[in-house]
Design a protein around this nucleic acid. Structure first.
Lengths: 227, 227, 227, 227
DNA sequence: TATGAATGAGCTTTCATTCAT
DNA sequence: CATGAATGAAAGCTCATTCAT
């Protein structure tokens, strides 16, 4: 919660400070970010900093809220009006995640850090945790999935939610690596992630993994590990 | 690689320092751990510290190697001689992970941190990365699984490996939370994780999720997300 | 290049810090000077120090520039408007050097140190090297001297320049020792170095040595070294 | 004065320690040399060091005595039995200096450092000061020169001694630079410094400078410095 | 005599925060 | 409100020296 003073700042100056903060956090991590460096790169006076924020934790909160806003905007752009089942929705989530990582790599990195921190911090609700993909998000998501008959009833939702969360947060970068040159086209908007063939095939595979598991038709089990 | 001086230290003193280091890393993270604090809590002189290690990075390497040793020992204790298919092997991996988390929570936390760091550090082989669950481990694992006909051929192994890695590293704590009081029994060895009913049911569910996916018999897709 | 912060400091405080730095360098040498000691004797906080300078090297540069300024001012005071030949000019240089050593003994010591360091550092232009008496100064000086027919054409200018440099930098203290009580009178300005008889006789002798050599009329060479 | 223990050390071990010390002093200067580094590179135990020497100052003294010995030996090799006048003797001194610099560059550097330190240390007799070229050496030298009628009687011997000392200590490196490729031949002994034409011409020039001064036949003085 | 582990003072540097202007 | 100078605690690391074995 930055000061009112900060929020009333001329747009340009505020953006400048935010950009510096984003860069600082992305580069040095949530804990490594330093006031001195931020003040230096943002060009504001040291005293001003303490009139805008109560500390780096405060800056972080603000940056994370910006991240959420931008991701939300991106999600809205991408949303098609078609009805979808749960897995189509999940696929959409991944698409958003990939685009966000491509277009706002620093913010994505910061969100990433925040997610990891939230894993370590004790069970207490971490207000830094992301809304989408946060602890309770996939719980509800799967509960609805069961209601809608998209998810088998035997599935332990809490367990599966945790699993989904892990995958959701850690898979985007891997997907981008696999996209190769296509990534650039997606980033600039030249190519639509909903139609790009490579992106589709990768997501198909991922979704099948989640939907159908590793072994849809398990062969007769053999001796696997022998040593 | 700690100094020979350190390795020749009387067992008791060495253990004391290692314990302090483990505590420090677990509490403050890989980057937050400080020489000063370690020196203070371990009771050695600052000068001595630098006769043992070249820096905190050096200490970390040592601690990680301890973690690997202990996990390996634990794995050996747990190994049954039965032949197993790939999923049985995977289940065993999770069992080891759970026990390790229970018995060496601080070391487990540190390994956890190291895994997360390895995700952020560039693709170059990170020597801090764990052997089991590391970048290439599940790749090979799945490749063998396909050969053994345990894994469907359509599976993109690199993608699935990343997915498995994410799940493997992030799920143990969740499982323990779900184990409730049983956790204590497993930790002390009163109960065998291979036979405990609650542990078995949780792992069954997890393995089914991985093996069979979220929706073994996917219903006809409905409109899921509507808002 | 000290910080703007330092340069904007109230005159008194700045002078105080500079004096402490000069004392420190003169006493402990260019390498032995320590931040801690400077901070202690100058009475500023350690943190402040790093807001003024980037390190001791930075302080040194500043002190050397002060030395150059003061010496220049002194030279201007001493300059007579008379036209002079090269040796008269050289004599003037020595006079300046003597007065500088008398009036700013610590600064002179520091310049001295800097000259010696510049001898050891590789041929690359050392920015700490003094302007007057520096590597290239006497080279040009002698070149002009030859043009003006003040210096014999057979003289190897590079060699002679090195020789002059050595003498120039190392002779002042010896001269002062020889001046005895007169030194004090010169220092306070009671006596004018351009007119003081003792100073003149010493400089005459020195100039003759340089101008005419050790043996203007070398006797027939005898067996000198016999042992 | 190293311990008797040190002097009784097996030749090989002692030489090894001395070599390490020489390297250390030459590289880091008389003050910068550190016990730790010496112990490390010499391969002796830290405790042993304190059984051989009372401190780095002690090591330095020993090294300087080695330097004197080696220079003396070199001088003896070079000495021709011919009678010489004072300037021939001086020329011989420079030849020794050049060869010493060429053959024992590290020892020469250390002697160089010691000379410079001796200039700064107060008038008290510095036992580190070199014998040849030291404070009193050239005094006597010139006194004898006057007796032998090699030096003009008007010369202030103390002043000239200082001057000679400065030149003697600071000129060798410059001469070597000027020798270019010839230096290597002199170092290895392929060429004799007493006969090598380039060396002779350089020394001729230097000796003439000292003997005859800069301006043997000074032209009528003109306006030299005008600005 | 030889060893090398132990030590704490000391070094340079960075840090978040306060406060007078 | 804005500024940036001031600050001292704390960081990582090196050092010469001691001393028990």
């Amino acid at each position: 919660m930055p000061t009112k003073t900060f929020l009333n700042l001329p747009e340009k100056k505020r953006a400048q400070i935010e950009a510096a903060a984003i860069h600082e956090f992305a580069q040095k991590g949530l804990r490594g970010a330093s006031v001195n460096a931020l003040v230096e790169t943002s060009g504001i006076a040291k005293g001003s900093y303490y009139q805008y924020f109560s500390g780096m934790q405060d800056v972080l909160k603000h940056i994370l809220s910006i991240a959420r806003q931008k991701k939300l905007a991106l999600a809205n752009d991408l949303r098609s009006s078609n009805g979808r089942d749960m897995f189509a929705y999940l696929r959409w989530l991944f698409q958003v995640e990939i685009l966000f990582e491509l277009r706002e790599p620093e913010l994505s990195t910061i969100e990433h850090y925040a997610f990891l921190e939230s894993l370590n911090s004790s069970a207490e609700a971490d207000e830094n945790a992301p809304l989408i993909g946060g602890p309770s998000f996939f719980n509800e998501f799967l509960a609805q999935g069961i209601l809608a008959d998209d998810v088998a009833t035997w599935v332990d939702t809490k367990l599966a939610a945790h699993l989904l969360g892990a995958v959701y947060h850690l898979i985007a970068r891997q997907l981008i690596v696999r996209l190769g040159d296509t990534a650039e086209a997606l980033r600039t908007g030249k190519s639509d992630i909903r139609e790009d063939p490579l992106a589709q095939s990768l997501l198909d595979n991922l979704m099948d993994l989640l939907e159908a598991g590793l072994a849809r038709e398990p062969a007769i089990r053999k001796d696997f590990y022998s040593k």
